[in-house]
Amino acid sequence: MKKSSPIFILKYCVFLIAVGITGCSEKSAEEPRPPMKTESLSSTPIEKTTPKPVVVTEKTRETYQWYCAQCHGIKGKGDGINAKFLTVPPRNHTKASYLETRTDEQFFEAIKFGGLSVGRAPCMPAWGNTLSDSTIHELVRYIRELCQCEAL
């Protein structure tokens, strides 16, 4: 398959590095690069286990619409009103081919601590001070519902 060729992997790595260097809405070379650790992200430990089964409710959908849809779009297609202003497009939550390569824990971390925490774009802020862990677990389930996929 073409996708697994070394050239593709190389291109992918270059893209990842480029994404890591640039900000969210411009390609700027003038920015300094202090360490990535931040005050807001380092304090709270990650909750690794989910004791109860997580259920997506109407409230979960409302939460998604209120916060996430600004960038990820009303239907989760990555086409929210901010999308075209960001250098790194928001994740399309209906695209199973990518999302099945990610674990629920990675989703959880990305939402709670922001995109950078899981090596993704810095465009997504940390929601850990805004949303409770249980709400975030529900959102993870909801994204699984949107992509109709599970982690492989």
Binding site: C24, M124, P125
Partner: peptide
């Protein structure tokens, strides 16, 4: 320059 970086990347305000 430092806080502009945080505005954009740490806190993602610019999104």
């Amino acid at each position: 320059a430092k806080i502009k970086y945080e505005f954009e990347r740490t806190f993602s305000c610019i999104s």
